[in-house]
Design a protein around this nucleic acid. Structure first.
Lengths: 348, 348
DNA sequence: TTGTACGCGTTATCAA
DNA sequence: TTGATAACGCGTACAA
């Protein structure tokens, strides 16, 4: 009977409930609730007495109970690979700001880019009855993942993934970004350009590979399959991929990063081979960070606005939650920009 | 009567409850609950029928209702200045991992280092009845902030702040870190060393200033007050502080960063003055990041393990939650290490 | 071993 | 304008 837990705060001043407020104010429970929630059918004097009781007791409505009654948790889940990736952290922070302003709190979980983990986290989000979800996914086509998402029965905004169904999706135009990067390198005279990215099971890598292909086709330059590495976004994969590329007899003259957190790893791999940027190898990064701006030489990057992406994802969610529950899924593609710095040299 | 919300998922297959499970399994509600929660007083056959019903319905217990019943939300709040600071993101991620393993979810909020905001967030955490809280604070001594924390009546672990009461606190030994940095610079022959940090109302700056002072005293070198800047941790303050220092007639020969996210700003300020690192000015950073490792030259830093800090904070919280609700507050001070790279030159 | 009944804190319906 | 009461989903004391 007695709740077993709550043992820690242990009695002392167990939190005031609306009953206490009602009692102190000398009104009924229902009236107290109405007064607190600003219903107009409450006389000014009563309203005042209730307000006094509230502040006297330091009463704060229990969000859990409200949730139980209203069926709304005012909680949004967010699932990203890792929060230590600056671009993702920026995304989360800006989404958080928008959602917070609308009265929603954020529950954050990291999928570590593992499928099982993602399924597990979706289950946790389901149990917590989040009102909405912003997430990346390991695979846009995996039936089990799709089913798990659907089973949440709440609006979902995919982050840099293509939507297969009714979900909203925000994507970055990586294809165009990589195309520009490659065009730029072609213009500098490069012919052997490597792309290091993740599995093409997910949109970002797929789209970057497409941009790579299109640029080559447009310039009539054949693609050496060896130069397109889709080993993974993680540091370890990227390092060995780059290291292998640079160790090959016909090594590329330029490397385009195909992951938002790959630049540091690529720079390390280049240096560990005793090579210089840009004299020996040209580099283009996939997101703009402190590192790319302040490195020597400053690194040319494909830039996109992750704060804007986070804001937009949050707004899409709020729109569905507050205004248009059953509209069709919207897909928003965000532009990229090539920021030319000094990490690419002309080939002669 | 009808819950107004839940309008979005709108009917279809409204989530299965334990009643449905009981009905399908042909048992009472209580039995279903016992079976699900693994009570032993349930016959194997019944246990099986319930399990079948659960998976048939895809039943997931409603965390909100459980919380209501048990008084425990299995939710931990975390309040940091900003999640885009790499050190803080690393901290959050490792804390998240530990707490997740113990079945707790994380609600994250950003205080932006603003007092009012912090009060507001504490209120939100209170309403959500988080089981525990990990946080920094704007001021360790502000009575209103202290009262707001106390009113949560839940265990709190302070992050890089000194505890005034029963709260657990994890701190980084910034004093020792700065002392070593200054010692190192003295050994290189520097005499005019600047420290750029935040307000001494909070522990980290206070402790760094102390380290700065102690190192000077020990070497019998007088302190020029002009060289200790406590303007703030934010980029804008740091930039103008450094810029002013470098523009002064008797400019420092070395600058020690007194904020975990200051290195980039300092480097920018130095470059915008047309100065070189380390020829014109030596630099020491206050946390180790991609930038410090990969910059040219690589930057000497005061390093500390933020993942370990996050893990420990999470464990302190779990210990209190699960084992020792009312033990005294523990204060853990984490060591720092001076990682010497190439951003400091000898003065002659 | 199983079932009935209650209450957690809140909001909303209905009647007064 | 106000009050009594039901209900949200769950866990458990108590009775069978």
């Amino acid at each position: 009977m007695r709740p077993k837990a709550r043992a820690h705060a242990a009695s002392r001043t167990d939190k005031a409930t609306i009953r206490d407020v009602a009692r102190i104010a000398g009104v009924s429970l229902a009236t107290a609730s109405r007064a607190i929630n600003g219903h107009r059918s409450v006389s000014p004097s009563v309203r005042q007495r209730v307000a006094d009781a509230v502040s006297e007791l330091g009463y704060k409505p229990d969000a859990t109970a409200q949730n139980m009654r209203t069926g709304v948790t005012r909680t949004i889940g967010i699932i990203v690979r890792s929060i230590t990736v600056p671009a993702l952290a920026g995304f989360v922070e800006s989404a958080q700001r928008v959602l917070d302003n609308a009265g929603y709190a954020l529950i954050i979980m990291c999928s570590e880019d593992r499928r099982e983990r993602e399924l597990e986290l979706l289950g946790l989000m389901a149990r917590r009855r989040v009102d909405g979800l912003i997430m990346t996914t390991q695979s846009e086509t995996d039936p089990e993942l799709i089913a798990a998402r659907a089973s949440l029965e709440c609006p979902i905004v995919l982050l840099d993934r293509e939507s297969t169904g009714d979900e909203d999706a925000t994507t970055v135009d990586h294809c165009d970004g990589v195309r520009r990067a490659i065009d730029y390198l072609f213009d500098l005279g490069h012919q052997r350009i490597a792309l290091v990215t993740g599995t093409t099971a997910v949109y970002p890598s797929r789209d970057r590979a497409r941009g790579y292909r299109e640029a080559h086709e447009r310039h009539g330059i054949p693609i050496d399959p060896e130069l397109v590495r889709t080993d993974g976004f993680d540091m370890h994969s990227a390092f060995s991929a780059v290291s292998a590329l640079l160790g090959s007899p016909r090594r590329p003259t330029a490397i385009v990063a195909g992951g938002i957190n790959m630049l540091g790893t690529i720079m390390q791999a280049v240096r560990s081979r005793g090579l210089r940027i840009p004299e020996d190898v040209s580099i283009i990064g996939a997101s703009d960070t402190d590192l790319s701006r302040l490195a020597t030489p400053p690194i040319t990057v494909i830039r996109w606005n992750f704060a804007e992406l986070g804001e937009t994802a949050a707004r899409l969610l709020l729109d569905r939650l507050l205004h248009n529950p059953k509209r069709a899924g919207r897909r928003l593609n965000f532009p990229t920009e090539l920021v030319v710095r000094s990490s690419c040299s002309a080939q002669t």
